[in-house]
Design a protein around this nucleic acid. Structure first.
Lengths: 220, 220
DNA sequence: AAAATAATTTAGACAAATCTAAATTAAGTT
DNA sequence: AACTTAATTTAGATTTGTCTAAATTATTTT
């Protein structure tokens, strides 16, 4: 019922990776967790023994239903702390992730539920990602990526699908954050880069790599 | 500069124990931390190598100046979280210690300083213990124990010098907490027990053991 | 002061989480 | 289909924090 910090980091990372691709590979996980493939294999055996994981040697892995429940619990803690840090302690958008990485491993249920109530049961964290409720339910939040929005249509940045310091840094520099209104003006076929408007009148260019990590909702 | 959860628990416990007696013994520490004497010896060697501890085999140990600084940092985190839990999340007095034991090991300095500011730089935690400031300074808080107060003098409970669940439970049952007004009415020489008044008119008896753990300030 | 007892330390082992290097399996290529 | 390459797993070692059992040192008692 209680997992080590290390186990939790593996579970959480598998959960995120398996959203994109159905199954997660040893090398992918090792890369994401900055560890070695051999270490991943060791941990996979342990998580399989605890029935959190479907895993056959050389076949990749997916979380079981139990594993996903554990993952959602961790994600709930992470996002509630992010909300707390931004909303109450006035951390900036790009600082909260790192601190929440530590706080998320304090797994006292009463603490988290009281924190949730204190914050007013927020639905989304400061990056626009949905916060699972006490039962582990999470909003589907059908988001579109920037390259998919039609030209000349004003819309709203609702999240980023990558929490690396590098991307947050770049977005900060370009003055793009949750809630920024953007509009795609032109699409360059050569490199799939985009010319977009941010805010009222600023015109900038962004790369395909960046555009694909910007999540959009249409409520604008 | 960064210590493991285990190291921090040793450091913190030594700090508390050496306040009472000048020097701390292996068995004392093992008892307090619910571990074995041999484990204590192992850790003492490690902490000595890190220059946090004065230690010669068979001679007991004390924290160095550096060790005390580390301890005060941990205590600061612990007490700020206790304050947060009681004040903001509405945990009761007797629940906060256990949860803070986990939170205290998240050692992000910016987090703690921002938390401090958010809480309005509180001077005392919910048990009445002083909270070290960002520089590690702590109020001396010259407290007296209940057996030492003069008869028929109304005074104020300002803390408890023992955080065990048992004592908190007993105090809860006797309706004594921080801020309760008490007055010693009679002292029984046979067993050093006291007859005291709590609140406006309740008269109860308390044992010497309990009385010695109740800290008093005269501001009443 | 010698003997008995208690406290402390050492020696050797173990579990968790990691690593490197070697072996194995799967996938891609000619 | 055989060969090459890439991915994965196994084997064996390391570090941290713990343990038990035995050895050592300190303290207390007679």
């Amino acid at each position: 019922m209680n997992y080590s910090v290390s186990e939790e980091n593996y579970i959480k990372t598998i959960f995120h990776l398996q959203k994109k691709e159905g199954t997660v590979t040893t090398n992918e996980l090792a890369g994401e967790l900055k560890t070695r493939p051999a270490s991943v294999t060791d941990m996979m055996k342990k998580l399989k023994a605890k029935k959190l994981l479907h895993y056959q040697p050389y076949q990749g892995f997916r979380l079981t239903t139990d594993g996903s429940k554990v993952a959602l619990g961790i994600i709930r803690r992470h996002r509630l702390w992010e909300y707390f840090l931004a909303e109450k302690l006035k951390f900036t958008w790009d600082e909260v992730h790192e601190v929440a990485e530590e706080l998320e491993h304090v797994s006292n249920k009463k603490l988290i539920d009281k924190l949730d109530a204190y914050l007013g049961f927020p639905k989304k964290d400061p990056h626009g990602d949905p916060i699972p409720d006490a039962q582990g339910k999470i909003e589907s939040g059908k988001k579109i990526r920037l390259p998919e929005v039609p030209l000349n249509t004003s819309c709203l940045v609702s999240g980023v699908s990558n929490q690396s310091g590098e991307i947050l840094d770049l977005l900060k520099h370009k003055k793009i954050s949750i809630g920024t209104v953007v509009e795609v003006r032109k699409r360059f076929e050569f490199d799939q880069s985009l010319e977009i408007r941010t805010g009222k009148q600023t015109i900038i260019n962004i790369s395909r790599e960046l555009a694909e990590n910007i999540l959009i909702s249409y409520e604008a």
